[in-house]
Amino acid sequence: MLHIYCPHCCEYREEEEFHVKGQAHLARPLDPEACSDKEWGEYLYFRKNPRGLHHELWVHAAGCRKFFNVTRDTVSYEIKEVYLIGEKPSVVAASVSAK
């Protein structure tokens, strides 16, 4: 069971309090009507499934009800960072493989 730092509550809480909402940074197209069916289909259904670093959207559902992002290693389940909506991750696949 993960131990997750909520950047809004500023403390570690148990995974039971959170819901994971899948891949982060999936911006809703600003002009949906301008999207082709293929583009809209990709927005709707196509998701990354990386072995390694993954940026995920989480919500502190049974806590402050705020959403935030998590960078998590899907192999070790290590949480590398949490960051607010609208922020960019500082730990990305390239920076880690470069080490």
Partner: peptide, 13 residues
């Protein structure tokens, strides 16, 4: 409720 919050917080803050 979570759906409303999701859109407000992530798309239309």
């Amino acid at each position: 409720y979570e759906w409303l919050e999701l859109y407000h917080q992530t798309e239309w803050p």
